[in-house]
Design a binder for these strands. Structure first.
Lengths: 131, 131
DNA sequence: ACCCAAATCAGTAATGATTACTATTTTATT
DNA sequence: AATAAAATAGTAATCATTACTGATTTGGGT
């Protein structure tokens, strides 16, 4: 399961170079610094391929863009409805996957998204209509 | 926070009449049995409005369609990569939201999706490349 | 090193779920 | 009933993503 093409390597590196959860277009622009001739289609195709093999994670937070995550360990995504930032929170153990297993489901990947207001926005009282 | 229009009521009822996680188009066809003249745009607009107020849940499993859920209690969505079905699993307590709280994040909604193979597909050995 | 078949590429066109728009109808209030 | 605000049906536009095509690159066998 080696990554053959220079383009795929660059895409994977670009994704792993950040702790944000970039979109295909962000990665496209990032990789273009290194390979100016790369095509957006190539980025999409490789991201899909990498997600299919489980090397990366495709995570959808409902903003109309597919986001990608180089960290495939089960963790929480805290999505702020105010600033749009997605924060990671490491899990000691994935109790939910274990629960799913006990109910006959065979888990492969988990995507946990909690929507709300992040600490920073809360502090600035930027929360809209919230508690 | 009353639901004024007949269309919005019908949309909400259609969504609550099923334990599946339908798409906007499914709901559109369902409501058309009752209100044949309803517009797809109306369905989208009301689903967005209902999701914004938290009366329903918009859940994205990465198949290119937005899915909606009338059950807003925190629960697991077990998404089978084989048959595409989304199964619910009730949670006794939402430990993950509590964990997020402890880290300064103010949770409002949680969407937990576990991808894998469901019991039925597993039994039929329909799992592709799986364990 | 060279050849060849398979895989991947860049570039562009097509797709299709969702959103925006507009003129009309419905609703709530006085 | 009159008025203003909100919601509707129908249609057109948007735009992230996918499909397609001919050119290029890759890796294994000789």
């Amino acid at each position: 399961m080696k990554n053959y093409s220079r383009q795929r390597e660059a895409i994977l590196q670009a994704l792993r170079s950040t702790d944000t959860h970039p979109t295909a277009n962000w990665i496209y622009n990032k990789v273009r610094e290194q390979i100016p001739s790369i095509s957006l289609g190539t980025v999409y195709r490789n991201l899909s391929a990498l997600a299919a093999t489980g090397e990366i994670l495709a995570i959808d937070v409902g903003d109309g863009f597919e986001h990608y995550d180089g960290d495939i360990s089960p963790h929480l995504h805290l999505s702020c409805r105010c600033c749009g930032n997605i924060e990671d929170l490491v899990l000691e153990s994935d109790a939910f996957s274990q629960l799913a297993s006990e109910h006959g489901f065979s888990p492969e990947t988990s995507i946990y998204v909690i929507y709300g207001i992040c600490k920073k926005c809360k502090k600035q009282n930027l929360n809209i209509g919230g508690n």
